[in-house]
């Protein structure tokens, strides 16, 4: 009982911290993109200001909408993107609920925010939202292949190195970096897998060049078009957290090092150092896959985006799997 209470309390704390970090990162992202475009950019606390304002605004439910579905989906999107953080190793510590779920669960729960967004958009009854939702679902179907290939390759690798443990569990995957388990071909394969999971980030985060579901200038913000006030604030937070969750997943899969295991740090400071090091790693992943990319690219067309993920990135990850397979079987 006490244990359960302790788990609930620490989960709550982690969710609050994660929400805060996600919004701060969102502010930094907006600032950096502005700087890259030779603008001054909004202050880093801008997301907090925006969300506070959105909670003040009227929450409109269109006449053509299905109210309960329309109103519940933003909450589902936020809740599922926060919950997934409980299963991913966060802040240099093992995942809070690591005994209750593994990589497969995380991939499925990470799907929920996009799905909730699409369902909410369909429920709004607006044609723009309908187009946006269809695009979102097409995109989802194209990039999920890549993530499953990445998951399979890593699980194959770890099932050989630790045969008695669950190869999909994060405790196994983060026990040692995958890079140390492979030879030359496998190393190349891992690099390809790393690149292809970074390439999935813009689609997962709804950022340029793959923000076809929310295209502002084409279909009037697509899936978000009918949302206002509180619901929009929830979706804004859900999107920020989704980026953080996916970046943490990439960090857990490919960059599981802790600072305290690399260099000597006093015992008391090691947790803080690991936490800061984790934030740095997540930020590097976000910068490479989302911030920099969205500052320098334009939006892909619908067919280009789907083709890019389903052909280019998928083949890249398959090649990675093949190379890892060669490495394992040779």
């Amino acid at each position: 009982m006490i244990e359960l209470l302790y788990l609930a309390a620490s989960s709550f704390l982690l969710i609050c911290v994660a929400l805060f970090i996600a919004l701060v990162f969102n502010g930094i992202e907006r600032k950096l993109i502005a700087r890259m475009q030779a603008r001054i950019g909004p202050p880093i606390i801008q997301p907090f200001i925006d969300i506070k304002k959105l909670f003040m605004k009227e929450n409109i439910v269109p006449d053509s909408a299905i109210p309960w579905l329309f109103n519940s989906m933003p909450a589902v999107a936020l809740a599922s993107s926060l919950i997934v953080l409980l299963y991913i190793p966060f802040a240099g510590m093992p995942a809070l609920l690591q005994n209750y779920g593994d990589l497969i669960l995380v991939l499925y729960v990470l799907l929920l925010p996009s799905l909730a967004l699409a369902i909410g958009a369909f429920a709004s009854g607006s044609s723009f939202a309908g187009i946006g939702a269809q695009r979102e679902v097409v995109l989802m179907m194209s990039y999920e292949f890549v993530l499953s290939v990445v998951a399979i390759s890593l699980a194959w690798l770890f099932s050989l190195c630790c045969p008695q443990a669950n190869a999909f569990a994060f405790s196994t995957i983060t026990s040692k970096p995958a890079w140390l388990l492979v030879g030359g071909a496998g190393f190349l394969g891992l690099i390809l897998l790393f690149i292809s999971s970074l390439a999935v980030m813009p689609a997962k985060a709804g950022k340029l060049p793959a923000d076809i579901g929310e295209a502002k200038t084409e279909i009037a913000e697509g899936v978000l078009v009918e949302y206002s006030g509180r619901n929009l604030a929830l979706l804004y937070m859900a999107q920020a957290v989704r980026v953080l969750a996916f970046a943490s997943l990439i960090v857990a899969l490919f960059l599981p090092w802790n600072l305290s295991s690399l260099i000597a740090i006093p015992e008391q400071l090691s947790m803080l150092a690991d936490f800061l090091f984790f934030l740095v790693k997540v930020f590097m992943v976000m910068f490479a896959s989302s911030i920099f990319v969205s500052a320098v690219t334009a939006r892909l067309k619908v067919d280009q985006a789907a083709r890019f993920y389903i052909i280019v990135v998928f083949l890249l990850s398959l090649l990675g799997l093949l190379l890892i397979g060669i490495d394992i079987l040779m």
């Binding site: 907006r30 502005a34 603008r39 001054i40 950019g41 909004p42 202050p43 801008q46 200001i49 925006d50 409109i60 723009f128 502002k216 200038t217 009037a220 913000e221 978000l224 078009v225 009918e226 949302y227 206002s228 929009l232």
Partner: peptide, 13 residues
Amino acid sequence: ERFGIKLVGSPRH
């Protein structure tokens, strides 16, 4: 945007 002024794509926002 440095003042937090942003052009949005939908009147709902």
